[in-house]
């Protein structure tokens, strides 16, 4: 997984509430599109006009927000489907950090699996950052994961384990494989305690 340490980048305002993962990436793009190509389909219904030309009104098509790597989002961003392609599509268009009052829970977990940092802040802080990102001549935002701070003085909370995994780019499967003896011991004891769990599909 790609590490996340500090990020200084353009932040784009994305104030819509309840942005669902169907909106972030359409189902047709989840069935066969290679991961590396998903970026161009992120937000496709809003981002392109019928016929395929860019919609100039879509925020990430505006010259000042092109190449934004931070999205300041409305409440409950990433609600809905578990499709991890939503995170792959965002990452594919360069987004590395999302700031919102709240996130869809499965989506939020998927972000952490892909080196994308979802930051939860109180609504008032997000609103202030939204105004800042929208202001004419807004400069870059800086996100410092080690210090858990946005733009120097806005502190955010993150679990210690998730923080370490992002900072070091650790792979969760590798970490769990190292716990194999514990998994084996759990199953051994559990086979006595709950025998009906095991071997049910063997005919």
């Amino acid at each position: 997984m790609e590490k996340f340490t500090t990020l200084t980048a353009t932040a784009a305002p994305f104030p819509q509430r309840n942005v669902d993962t169907d909106t972030i990436i359409r189902i047709e793009r989840c069935t066969g599109t290679p991961k590396a190509e998903l970026g161009k389909y992120a937000f496709e219904m809003a981002r392109y006009l019928p016929g395929g030309a860019e919609n100039p009104e879509f925020v990430l098509n505006q010259p000042r927000y092109r190449g934004a790597q931070i999205l300041v989002c409305g409440e409950f961003f990433g609600t809905g489907s578990s499709r991890e392609m939503a995170v792959w599509a965002l990452a594919g268009m360069g987004i590395r950090c999302l700031i919102a009052p709240s996130f869809g829970q499965i989506f939020q977990g998927n972000c952490f699996q892909n080196g994308v940092l979802p930051i939860t802040l109180p609504p008032a802080s997000v609103a202030a950052l939204m105004r800042q990102a929208s202001a004419p001549g807004a400069g870059s935002f800086t996100v410092d994961l080690e210090r858990q701070a946005v733009n120097g003085d806005i502190r955010f909370e993150i679990g210690a384990r998730r923080k370490q995994m992002l900072l070091e780019g650790l792979d969760e499967i590798d970490l769990t494989l190292a716990l194999e003896p514990k998994i084996a011991a759990f199953q051994d004891a559990d086979r006595t305690r709950r025998p009906w769990i095991y071997g049910c599909t063997r005919s």
Binding site: S82, R83, E84, M85, V87, I106, G109, N110, Q113, N114, G159, R161, E172, I173, L175, T176, L177, L179, E180, I183, Q187
Partner: peptide, 21 residues
Amino acid sequence: AWGIGTSELTHVLATQTLVQQ
């Protein structure tokens, strides 16, 4: 019971476990 993305699904295939808050 809950739904998972591709990374967690791969984790389950490989380890029969999940890391959860």
